[in-house]
Amino acid sequence: MQLVLVPSKKEDIDKYKTINNYIIGVKDFSVNYNFVMDINEIINLSSEYSNKNIFVVINKNIMNDDLQKLEQMMIDINNSNIKGILFYDMAVLSIKKRLNLKIDLVWNQGHMVTNYNTCNYYYDKGVNFAYISNEITLEEMIEIKKNSKIKLFTLLFGYPIMAHSKRKLLTNYSISSNKNILKDSHKIVDKISNKEFIIKEDNIGTSILFGDISNHVLAIDEMLKNDFDYGVIDSNYINSDTILEMINIIDRILLGEDLSSYKERIINLIGDNSSFLYKKTIYKVKRK
């Protein structure tokens, strides 16, 4: 398994020296990412760090007015050192095929990357990677791995994204309540369950993240046993010392050290919320 970092600032590339793969948001085309850069800056970065694999994220819902810029951007990416594009909208795949671009694509429809048949569908369309949903079980992830040739990105730890809206929910609240609240990140709490979420708004819309870190690191042995390809560390909202120590621990486990000797420290650092790894969601309420 190779580690992939979602940095929270440009300097992270120098700071976390053992990481060779990065996912960076593109200004005006990425949602749910705190740290984004202009595409030309990322292209320059990919030249500067030519020994690293830099993936960019184009995961907004593309509108007609975005298409011309998207097409030019994909041509520029294709001619750069950027390794690949994590895409949400089918327009990206369509443009790649139409222009016969060589750039790697990562199917990154978040909550919808949940079965091996759809992974195979995209693989047959020339998509070599998929970033698997955070809302499925470890067993389901393993089944996908076994039944598809597509290479998998899996979250190792980070605050998981729950929802994205085109609506400016913080601005709207600010206007309606006559309160001048900042559009940056806020904490909201469900009044019944007391569960916390992080909400943030930018010029594209509003995103909501779960308020606890998802810790999939404790399942890393199973992931390694099943040849999971890329483990993603999302550093947003997590302090850099924690990220650094976690990377060191994971590096040691990848080199063969025993997970159990680090388990307590891992839990101290990022908690033990295994999210949906061992918890199936239900979708039919039983009738009495």
Partner: peptide, 10 residues
């Protein structure tokens, strides 16, 4: 956006 909401799951 439809498909982009898992508030219910969490």
């Amino acid at each position: 956006f439809s498909g982009r909401c898992t508030l219910s799951n969490y």
